[in-house]
Measured scan of single mutants.
Amino acid sequence: NRRVIAMPSVRKYAREKGVDIRLVQGTGKNGRVLKEDIDAWLAG
């Protein structure tokens, strides 16, 4: 149960899109989840 590193704005964006942020692979520094990662996850 790893802790997800993401800015609050990215967490909010994921919530609005209905994405469980824990399932998204972060590509930022130290595995940080970026807004682009959410978009990529939604695109498949």
Results as ranks from 00 to 15, higher is better:
4 V>W: 03
38 I>R: 00
16 E>C: 09
30 N>Q: 11
13 Y>L: 05
32 R>Q: 09
9 S>R: 14
12 K>N: 08
8 P>T: 08
24 V>A: 04
18 G>A: 09
15 R>P: 00
10 V>R: 01
11 R>T: 04
37 D>F: 00
29 K>C: 08
18 G>Y: 09
25 Q>R: 14
41 W>S: 04
42 L>I: 14
3 R>K: 15
18 G>W: 08
33 V>G: 00
31 G>V: 02
35 K>S: 07
9 S>I: 11
21 I>E: 02
21 I>A: 03
27 T>H: 08
29 K>P: 11
13 Y>W: 05
38 I>W: 00
29 K>S: 10
39 D>K: 07
8 P>W: 08
7 M>G: 15
35 K>L: 10
43 A>G: 11
35 K>M: 11
23 L>I: 12
14 A>G: 04
35 K>W: 06
39 D>C: 06
20 D>G: 03
28 G>P: 01
38 I>S: 00
10 V>G: 01
10 V>F: 01
6 A>F: 02
8 P>E: 07
23 L>Q: 13
3 R>M: 06
27 T>S: 13
34 L>A: 05
27 T>I: 03
18 G>V: 05
39 D>P: 01
34 L>Q: 09
39 D>I: 09
21 I>D: 01
25 Q>E: 13
27 T>K: 06
42 L>D: 05
6 A>Q: 03
1 N>L: 04
20 D>R: 06
30 N>T: 08
17 K>G: 04
12 K>W: 09
29 K>D: 09
10 V>N: 02
11 R>L: 07
9 S>Q: 12
41 W>F: 13
38 I>D: 00
44 G>F: 14
12 K>D: 05
42 L>R: 08
16 E>R: 15
10 V>I: 07
43 A>R: 15
16 E>P: 00
3 R>Y: 03
15 R>N: 09
44 G>R: 15
17 K>N: 12
23 L>M: 13
15 R>H: 11
33 V>W: 01
26 G>H: 04
30 N>M: 13
27 T>C: 05
5 I>D: 06
17 K>C: 06
16 E>T: 12
9 S>D: 09
17 K>D: 01
15 R>S: 10
32 R>V: 06
28 G>W: 02
12 K>T: 06
15 R>T: 10
10 V>C: 05
32 R>G: 06
28 G>H: 03
10 V>E: 06
7 M>P: 11
35 K>D: 04
24 V>F: 03
8 P>L: 11
33 V>L: 05
44 G>K: 14
16 E>L: 14
14 A>V: 01
13 Y>E: 03
9 S>Y: 12
13 Y>F: 05
12 K>M: 08
10 V>Q: 02
29 K>G: 08
42 L>S: 07
29 K>Q: 11
38 I>H: 00
28 G>L: 03
17 K>F: 08
32 R>N: 06
43 A>L: 13
19 V>R: 00
25 Q>M: 14
15 R>Y: 10
35 K>P: 05
11 R>I: 07
28 G>K: 03
33 V>P: 02
22 R>Y: 13
39 D>W: 05
24 V>Q: 01
36 E>P: 12
14 A>S: 08
25 Q>A: 13
43 A>M: 14
1 N>C: 09
1 N>S: 13
4 V>S: 04
29 K>A: 11
40 A>F: 12
6 A>I: 05
41 W>T: 05
25 Q>V: 14
14 A>C: 06
25 Q>D: 12
16 E>Y: 13
27 T>Y: 04
27 T>L: 04
21 I>S: 02
17 K>I: 08
36 E>D: 12
31 G>N: 09
15 R>D: 05
25 Q>L: 14
5 I>G: 04
15 R>G: 07
30 N>C: 10
31 G>D: 07
30 N>W: 13
9 S>H: 14
36 E>I: 14
42 L>Q: 07
7 M>L: 14
35 K>Q: 09
18 G>L: 09
29 K>M: 11
5 I>H: 05
19 V>K: 00
38 I>M: 02
43 A>H: 12
33 V>D: 00
3 R>I: 14
32 R>W: 09
11 R>V: 06
17 K>M: 14
3 R>G: 13
18 G>N: 12
14 A>E: 00
6 A>Y: 03
14 A>P: 01
39 D>L: 08
11 R>E: 04
40 A>P: 01
31 G>I: 02
28 G>E: 03
22 R>E: 09
22 R>T: 11
31 G>L: 07
35 K>Y: 06
26 G>C: 03
34 L>H: 09
38 I>G: 00
24 V>N: 00
29 K>F: 12
26 G>N: 03
31 G>S: 08
28 G>Y: 02
32 R>L: 08
34 L>F: 10
17 K>W: 09
1 N>E: 14
26 G>I: 02
4 V>E: 04
37 D>W: 00
24 V>P: 04
21 I>N: 00
22 R>A: 09
30 N>R: 14
19 V>M: 05
37 D>Q: 01
6 A>S: 05
37 D>I: 00
37 D>S: 02
34 L>R: 10
2 R>W: 04
31 G>T: 04
8 P>Q: 10
6 A>W: 02
40 A>M: 13
37 D>T: 01
11 R>W: 14
33 V>Q: 02
28 G>S: 04
5 I>E: 07
42 L>A: 08
11 R>Q: 05
22 R>V: 08
13 Y>K: 02
41 W>V: 06
31 G>W: 06
27 T>V: 03
27 T>D: 02
24 V>S: 01
19 V>W: 01
25 Q>F: 15
35 K>G: 04
3 R>L: 11
36 E>V: 14
40 A>W: 10
23 L>G: 09
21 I>G: 01
31 G>Q: 09
6 A>G: 03
5 I>Q: 06
42 L>N: 05
4 V>G: 05
4 V>K: 07
17 K>L: 12
20 D>V: 05
20 D>E: 08
6 A>T: 05
25 Q>W: 15
23 L>C: 07
12 K>L: 09
27 T>N: 07
12 K>C: 10
4 V>N: 05
38 I>K: 00
22 R>D: 07
41 W>P: 01
16 E>H: 11
35 K>H: 08
7 M>S: 15
37 D>L: 00
30 N>H: 13
2 R>Y: 04
42 L>E: 06
39 D>N: 11
37 D>K: 00
4 V>L: 07
20 D>T: 05
40 A>S: 12
21 I>F: 04
22 R>K: 09
4 V>I: 11
29 K>W: 10
9 S>M: 11
16 E>K: 14
44 G>N: 14
35 K>T: 08
25 Q>G: 10
15 R>Q: 09
8 P>A: 14
13 Y>A: 03
20 D>M: 07
13 Y>V: 03
4 V>F: 04
44 G>W: 14
42 L>M: 12
13 Y>G: 01
7 M>V: 10
28 G>M: 03
27 T>G: 06
25 Q>K: 14
3 R>F: 05
26 G>D: 02
33 V>H: 01
9 S>A: 15
23 L>K: 13
7 M>A: 15
40 A>I: 11
4 V>A: 05
44 G>M: 15
8 P>R: 15
37 D>N: 08
26 G>A: 08
12 K>P: 01
42 L>Y: 07
35 K>C: 06
21 I>M: 06
18 G>H: 11
35 K>F: 08
37 D>H: 02
21 I>Y: 05
13 Y>R: 03
42 L>H: 06
44 G>V: 13
30 N>G: 13
37 D>A: 01
26 G>T: 04
32 R>D: 05
27 T>F: 04
44 G>I: 13
41 W>Y: 14
28 G>V: 03
2 R>I: 15
21 I>P: 03
20 D>Q: 07
1 N>R: 13
2 R>E: 14
7 M>E: 12
17 K>Y: 08
24 V>W: 02
37 D>M: 01
12 K>F: 08
31 G>F: 09
30 N>I: 07
14 A>W: 02
39 D>A: 05
34 L>P: 00
7 M>R: 15
24 V>D: 00
16 E>S: 14
9 S>V: 10
4 V>T: 05
2 R>K: 15
29 K>H: 10
3 R>W: 04
27 T>P: 02
39 D>H: 05
41 W>R: 04
36 E>A: 15
23 L>E: 10
2 R>C: 12
22 R>Q: 11
13 Y>I: 04
10 V>P: 01
1 N>K: 13
36 E>G: 15
5 I>Y: 05
23 L>F: 12
33 V>Y: 01
8 P>K: 15
15 R>W: 12
22 R>F: 11
29 K>N: 10
11 R>N: 03
9 S>T: 09
38 I>E: 00
22 R>G: 08
24 V>E: 00
15 R>C: 09
24 V>K: 01
11 R>D: 02
9 S>C: 09
31 G>A: 08
9 S>W: 13
18 G>R: 11
16 E>A: 14
33 V>F: 01
39 D>M: 08
12 K>V: 06
43 A>K: 13
16 E>W: 12
12 K>I: 07
25 Q>Y: 15
7 M>H: 15
27 T>W: 04
43 A>S: 12
7 M>Q: 14
26 G>W: 03
16 E>I: 12
34 L>G: 07
13 Y>M: 04
19 V>Y: 01
26 G>V: 03
39 D>Y: 04
7 M>W: 15
19 V>H: 01
21 I>T: 03
36 E>W: 13
14 A>M: 01
30 N>L: 13
2 R>P: 11
12 K>Q: 09
